[in-house]
Design a protein around this nucleic acid. Structure first.
Lengths: 332, 332
DNA sequence: CTGTTAGCGCGTTCAG
DNA sequence: CTGAACGCGCTAACAG
């Protein structure tokens, strides 16, 4: 475990001072081409890899990033989404040379704001990506307001000098997928099962639905399914009989609704939101909004990197697709 | 970002030397109750949180652990398994005060052994948990043989002084679940779809099948499905007609087989292995071996901690359940 | 039992 | 444009 090959070894090999090597590593301006190449060559030859731990300790602004996964673990199939988020960020992190650590919200949920800040600081963390935040997460809001860290919020429209937001246009996407679904069958009376009462995406998607209802002169009954398959199922049993389409704010709820309809032995068009693989396994094909969670997460990392470099926070709106998912496509 | 409250501050507050605080923190023996409490009190009052980064840099044996997820990302639904592994380890890590970083194998696949070692060392990593390793992973085998790190291999029976293995008894589990399945319908001629050609679990499960075939005087046709749903589907189309049960080495392959059977419009009992949630969504209920991936991963962390404390490597065999998964249970 | 002295590997002034 | 010197927060010998 000892004798790590350090910046000092490289310096010796290249006949320069350690600090010179450091400057080459960190792309400092005032280094001559010649010594630069000399150092670079030594780095290659010695298979030197910088110790990011030491760098973090020393510089206090090195790119250590925390992924804060704040998803309700009770919601199944969420696994896929979280996994996409994780691998997107982790893979992007290695190319950007960022050190990324993963933190499930449950791991730190019982900390006070101050303890949480100290914890993050003790890890030399300077940047944070937050996934799945809702209006109720006081702690996270404080964290953002304090502006002690550079933060990217995924799917929460929060922006300040040190905070960027990354998300798709949920309003437009919900509008479009619902429109497509109701027009296929000429539906007029729709049941809309929304997500969590205080969720950001829930609000945005609901807004899209309201616009659609107005534009197409529909009637809409809104119920809250809390992104739960079971709740959506129960809501469907109770209300779908008198409605002629069921629009859901998530795929999982759409699956719950669809299974309820099958048990009720009635047909209603259903549509979901997310585009998770599971959609390909249920017998019926439904319209959905396919979000590329992997790409979203990569974008979040890119955005965070800009923040770390001094850029001001902003919104970054991403694209999506309207699709039906077939089993044949899934198993490829 | 500045003025982190450090060990020095605590020392001042408690009127002792920094090293004394360090000794208290690291449970050194020779500290009087009195100064111990004094220090502890100061720690509380100042809300001090040790900087594990600095500790790692200094001590070179602090508990920094890498999770090496080496799963074929082409295999769907694997998401759930990986996620269970991750959250199990990460959550256990926080209670054990281990710093855990997540590394997908794809992130480092193109490194040489030496580069990989340097990379891990540059992160001050001393312990590694490897998930889903097969006989072909030369790099990982070297890593284990070199014994530079304390390693826990999940689902690979590799043990040396610095390496432990954690897994369920795949042979027995495969035996039991297959036995249950064939006995329910009195099957004699079975089609067994095994996993990857050089996988450790594949070998162990196959061994279980061979024993069953012998014990029950069955005939068995073995085909390799590579843990792929599509391949299992194709194998089923081709061979299941002349067999009277399809035993699969994974749930995903079992689902592929079952869907093929449905399209062929013939009935054959099918059983899987793993107990993933997806099993609850497919219409038919199949026997499967439910592995608790979350718990497995927690056990892996525990085992690694023992290794880090000086214990020698060994096998740790875990339990499992035979189940059929119902949709009703899944959606709760 | 406690304090002092050195580093761990690196980034960062500040002279030269 | 380069190098010497200092410090990040902590642990590890060694004294006392």
């Amino acid at each position: 475990m000892r004798n790590m090959i350090s910046i000092k070894d490289v310096a010796q090999h290249a006949h320069v001072a350690p600090s010179t090597v450091s400057k080459v590593l960190n792309h400092y301006p005032n280094i001559s081409e010649e010594t630069r190449n000399k150092v670079l060559r030594s780095i290659k030859e010695l298979h030197y890899i910088p110790n990011s731990i030491a760098a973090a300790l020393s510089s206090k602004q090195s790119g250590r990033v925390a992924l804060l996964i704040n998803i309700d673990s009770k919601v199944k199939a969420i696994d896929e989404i979280a996994m996409q988020y994780l691998s997107g960020a982790l893979n992007r992190g290695v190319t950007c040379k960022l050190d990324i650590i993963t933190i499930f919200f449950s791991m730190i949920a019982d900390l006070s704001t101050e303890e949480m800040i100290r914890y993050l600081q003790s890890q030399s963390i300077t940047g944070i990506i937050i996934y799945g935040m809702s209006r109720e997460d006081k702690l996270l809001h404080e964290l953002i307001d304090l502006q002690l860290f550079k933060i990217v919020a995924v799917d929460a429209p929060i922006v300040n000098k040190n905070t960027s937001a990354v998300y798709i246009d949920h309003e437009k996407a919900q509008y479009e997928v619902a429109k497509k679904t109701v027009e296929e069958d000429g539906c007029k009376r729709i049941l809309y099962i929304k997500g969590k009462e205080n969720g950001y995406v829930t609000a945005m998607r609901l807004k899209g639905m309201k616009k659609l209802v107005k534009d197409l002169q529909l009637s809409m009954l809104v119920k809250c399914g809390n992104f739960s398959e079971l709740q959506a199922r129960n809501i469907t049993f109770q209300y779908a009989g008198e409605r002629d389409a069921v629009i859901c704010a998530s795929d999982l709820m759409a699956i719950g609704a669809m299974n309820a309809l099958i048990e009720m032995d009635i047909f209603r068009p259903v549509c979901g939101f997310d585009g998770i693989t599971l959609m390909g396994y249920v017998g019926k094909q439904m319209n959905t909004v396919r979000q590329n969670f992997y790409a979203v997460s990569q974008n979040a990392v890119d955005e965070l990197q800009l923040l770390l470099k001094g850029r001001e926070g902003r919104k970054r709106i991403l694209g999506y697709e309207l699709v039906k998912m077939h089993y044949k496509d899934i198993i490829l």
